[in-house]
Design a protein around this nucleic acid. Structure first.
Lengths: 343, 343
DNA sequence: TTGTAGGCGTTATCAA
DNA sequence: TTGATAACGCCTACAA
């Protein structure tokens, strides 16, 4: 214990120099096959494992990509991560997944990790993004924002992104509800000071109402509870309960996420009402559960795999200096299911 | 770019020695407050970030705990991670979350990480566990298996664990179904060569049938599809569809996980049948969604927070050498909801 | 309170 | 094909 076995120990045991051992480990060409086999055998027998800190310290560059993920709660991140991993490995790079706490600054984490692991590129997944250009400039390797809503306050030349158009897709859903004859559409949205996807989707809602000549009713705008996990089923449940208990009339609820929508359905069903007979409910994201829920839920399906693949493609184009920046917008799909009906 | 700024640069810029800078960074007592402030100011201005690899390399020990998680898909891991993080921080330790691929060997990952980060302890979360004692012995720091079903083939003195008794809790559920008058209970289970929780829960099913004098019917045992993500809604859906299309009679389905149960419900509803009127459905785990699903789902709720808290408690007892090993079993709770009825 | 110097475990450079 | 040796960036006796 304590003094772990090192490359020097192995070298001694093999009667060779450390360089030779290092060559064996790292598959260098300049080494005799027999020597290599012998070294590897000794390594196996003694369970020698190279120290990564020392490696990273010494190595000038390593072929590794980090994915920083904020709000690991989001269920479709899992699927994206699968794709990231597959694509990154296909490029013969290795892949690090780093969770970022809600309170942590993802750029700070990225800067630290970049030095520690000699990263070649970074993917930021989820969360809001509001950092000064000065801060972004501290990142010396290419990075891509994936599935992160950005407002216009950023210079598009300063970063790259891959996502859907949250404003437009949100508009699409609300417009659909309007076309189904709904004119009292409640929304479960983020807090009013949200500047990311929450705001974009909310803006889509307002614009769709406006274009359909439906007066905006502030009483139908319901923000998620601050003290409950955001975008969660519980949050949708609580907010909807309150809405139902209020005297406000409405025929449809548009929730900013599928989980919120599920909570909404539950609250409605629990109140002895029915979806969609009494109230239509629509979500956003296209989670698997929306298909399995009863009733199945009308939603906007984000093309998760495509977004993930394109994210990696853009990142490598950045790494290989084929481009300096890029913004890719994917269309999402309105999936009409049982939870909404015309009236 | 390239040559990143180092502690030596900072020292030069400040006109002090590196030791002083190091002291400032690491909050050492032996440093003049003014000097420290000055150093920190220069660090801020130049965006200096210490290189973690160098730190880890030099440090003989660091107060950090790693949580290795296999199958990040499992929804209640998120909740456990929250607790881990909170508890570990409360002990003034820092916390690393490391995802382990399905194909990776978690012990190998742990060994590497232990050296790289000078870990003080490890939590293994999820997955199956079948490693030789020889391999486990390569871990030189304490570790705890959390929520990992273990069969008897291990010497209980070789490791520590915190979990529920999967056999007993599974028995409880099936026994309940029997008491409700069900005698044709289908099960959606893991493949027959599973040696972990899958086997334990399946064994509980068989024993409960036996104790209730119900003949075992192999036709009612349905294994998850190998080519679909295990324990997923989709898997439960496909298996149940097949079961319904077969001529086999049954009145209840017991699924080894809540997600499987949800898939089962969907298949039943889609077939024009009703839960629980035509078929009762029961799950296992106690995920939030079981409350929100329609109908709400009868399940076994694992005391997630308690398990997580106890895991950390045991780990620190191990670290502080208060104990040499421990096995904690938590009781789980049968929650009867709408998806099951007596007949 | 501060600075100098040695070493953590590797890999890269160079010479043999 | 090999091996000695100098970094990599930091921390920490020890000395001042």
């Amino acid at each position: 214990m304590g003094a772990s076995i090192t490359i020097i120990d192995i070298a001694r045991m093999c009667g060779v120099g450390v360089t030779t051992v290092s060559r064996a480990i790292n598959n260098h060409p300049d080494i005799n096959d027999e020597t290599k086999a012998m070294v590897m055998k000794v390594i196996k027998e003694n369970h020698y494992v190279p120290n990564n800190s020392a490696r990273n310290l010494k190595r000038s560059a390593s072929k590794t990509i980090a994915v920083l993920i904020k709000g690991i709660t989001n269920p479709f991140f899992n699927q994206m991560i699968q794709v990231f991993e597959k694509e990154i490995k296909r490029k013969k790079y290795s892949f690090i997944l780093q969770r970022v706490d809600d309170k942590q600054d993802e750029i700070d984490v990225a800067i630290e990790l970049e030095k520690e692991k000699r990263l070649k590129g970074i993917v930021f997944l989820g969360g809001y993004f509001s950092h000064s250009k000065e801060k972004l400039d501290q990142l010396t390797v290419p990075f891509v924002l994936s599935t992160i809503g950005m407002t216009d306050e950023f210079d598009a030349n300063d970063y790259s992104s891959v996502s859907v158009d949250d404003f437009k897709e949100s508009y699409k859903m609300v417009d659909y509800l309007c076309n189904q004859g709904h004119d009292k559409i409640a929304i479960i949205t983020a807090s009013m000071d949200d500047v990311s996807i929450g705001k974009l989707r909310y803006d889509g809602y307002k614009k769709a109402l406006e274009d359909n000549g439906i007066p905006f009713n502030n009483q139908l705008v319901r923000c998620m509870k601050e003290d409950i996990e955001s975008y969660s089923m519980e949050n949708g449940y609580m907010v909807t309960k309150e809405l139902l208990e209020s005297s406000e009339e409405f025929t449809a609820i548009y929730a900013l996420s599928d989980n919120l929508a599920i909570g909404a359905c539950k609250a409605i069903i629990e109140a002895g009402k029915s979806v969609p007979e009494d109230y239509s409910v629509a979500g956003f994201d296209g989670l698997d559960i929306t298909f399995y829920y009863n009733p199945s839920i009308t939603t906007i399906r984000q093309p998760v795999d495509e977004i993930a693949e394109e994210t990696i493609r853009v990142l490598f184009d950045l790494i290989n200096k084929k481009i300096t920046h890029a913004h890719r917008i994917f269309p999402a799909e309105l999936i009409v299911r049982e939870s909404t009906k015309s009236r």
